[in-house]
Amino acid sequence: MTRPITVVTGGSRGIGAATCLRLAADGHDVAVGYVRDADAAEAVADGVRAAGGRSVTVRVDTSVEADVERLFDIAEQRLGPVTGLVNNAGVTSPLGRLADADPADLRRVVDVNLLGTLLCSRRAAQLMTARGGGVIVNVSSAAATLGSPGEYVHYAATKAAVDALTLGLAKELGPDGVRVNAVAPGVIDTEIHAAGGDPNRAHRAAATIPLRRPGRAEEIAAAVAWLMSPDASYATGAVLRVSGGR
């Protein structure tokens, strides 16, 4: 059988990196999209190859249409017809109340988390509908339903929009044989908290989580991998919450 060929945005670290490696272990060839750290992306690609897959790294700002076009073009040129997309690229901003947020930070969060997901989904839809099949998995957040007051309500708002996109696009592309789902992680122990100015946030939050610990990137990758797999062949329009009960 032909190996699935999957594009993973934000694939150089955290949930994205874990997803690339898990998909490779499950038999995927992987295009690793990254925005800054070329060395980290290449390390992930090496891990994909060590697991028996082919891999290519592509620098991409998902909020820029030309970058998104180039990402998919290189993936198809180097690996073959893209069969899957994991919309993982996302950003936060310094934690705090919306009233105190910098408008530039608001715009960047919306541009990457929502517009970037829309642009990548649009390109994937163009390719997949023409071929009669494919899988898209969006990385949302439990924040979409919790709101994240006092931390980043703008981030939560973009993830709520990603949930709406997941449902609408699943209905739109279902007749074309394309499945669209999302995973909504809770508090996961990754570098994203340091980027928001609070590197210990994940462990401080443990007391508010029913399982009493933050999640691991590999646990989210496992959920993504299931939604990408034939075992989830009748799942579309679903938002799978993986949040330790929060």
Rank of each mutant, 00 (worst) to 15 (best):
A99I: 03
Q126N: 07
N138M: 06
G133W: 11
S121I: 01
D176E: 05
V162K: 03
S148M: 11
A164Q: 13
P103W: 09
D163A: 10
N138G: 05
T129M: 14
V162Q: 04
L167T: 12
A130P: 02
M128Q: 09
G132Q: 10
A125Q: 01
G116P: 09
L127N: 03
V135S: 14
A143D: 11
V112D: 09
R123S: 05
G150I: 03
G133K: 05
G133D: 11
N138Y: 03
R122H: 15
P175D: 09
S148C: 06
L119S: 03
L146M: 10
A157E: 05
D111P: 05
L146A: 09
H154M: 04
P103C: 12
G168D: 07
G174K: 08
P149K: 04
E151N: 00
L115W: 13
I136E: 03
G134V: 02
K159E: 08
S140H: 06
D111F: 13
V109W: 02
Y152T: 02
T129E: 14
A125Y: 00
D100I: 07
K159D: 08
S141D: 12
L167V: 15
G147P: 00
K159A: 13
G96K: 02
Q126G: 15
G116K: 12
L95N: 04
Y152Q: 06
I136K: 03
S140K: 06
A99Q: 08
S121D: 06
G96P: 03
G132W: 12
A160F: 01
Y155D: 14
S141T: 09
V137E: 04
V139C: 05
G133H: 11
V110L: 15
A160V: 01
Y155W: 08
V135G: 01
L106M: 07
A143F: 04
T145E: 15
A144E: 04
V162H: 07
L146V: 07
T166L: 02
T166W: 04
A142F: 00
